[in-house]
Amino acid sequence: MTINPQHQALIRQRNIRKVLQAVPVYILLVLASVVIGAPFFWMITTALKPFAEVAIYPPKWIPSYIRWENFVEAWQSAPFARFYVNSVFVSVTSTILQVGIGLFSAYAFARIEFPRKDALFLLVLATMMIPGQMTLIPNYITLSKLGWINTYKALIIPHAANAFGTFMMRENIMSLPGELFDAAKIDGAGHLRTLKDLVIPLTRPILGTLILLNFIGHWNAYLWPLIVTNTANMRTLPIGLVYMRMQEGGSIWNLMMAATIFVTAPILLIFIFNQKQLIEGVTRGAIKG
């Protein structure tokens, strides 16, 4: 079959129109990306500049030479090694506890019979409506009574329970075909074994997403660590960064931005390598929640 020339011309015309339509879309998206990305660019370029090029106007976009010493000096200007250890330990432990605890209760709500368990589940959901700021004072008092202020326990335990993750995992477990669970039961598998051999392998994607989201959440936490830590050796990275600024007077911007990169780089790397999964996880959570 041959396509007549007229038809060909029409197709070409339509393709050209399509491309032309895409041009304004591109321009607008590039514009939006430049505006939204500008602070990141500003952070990186400032962190690489010698001090003399920070406080000049108009700004120098590309430093005349890259001053790597900024990172060394920023690292030494506050106990950043310690902040890192604290942030990593607190975020990892909190994440493991949160996902683990959530998984157990999600499984129970999805697969174990219990009278009026839906009412109990509503109680879990209700905690999502209670703003965290409301609980600051009582939790601070509880922790002081326990002697936990300025310890890892204070940073980890109060946020180890988790409603959102429980909710997501419960949905996920309930969507698994019931025959699988019947088969496991017939095989004589108890709940623990079903959880380990059946549920965890099958819910791996959602577990991965929750682990990433929780980790990011704990890494970025600011208000709670600000309240329950009071010495430098217990501070997490965001708190340490803010204290560094208070000590430095906040005008040595190349060092400040180098320190800011210490705080944000791990999260941005996680995001870059798991972009699709994270965005989908966040969107799904939003639509279901």
Partner: peptide, 16 residues
């Protein structure tokens, strides 16, 4: 790019 501020540490971003 548009989504990236959502995951960035707020305190650090505010500093920038």
């Amino acid at each position: 790019i548009i989504f990236s501020p959502h995951v960035t540490t707020t305190a650090a971003a505010a500093m920038v």
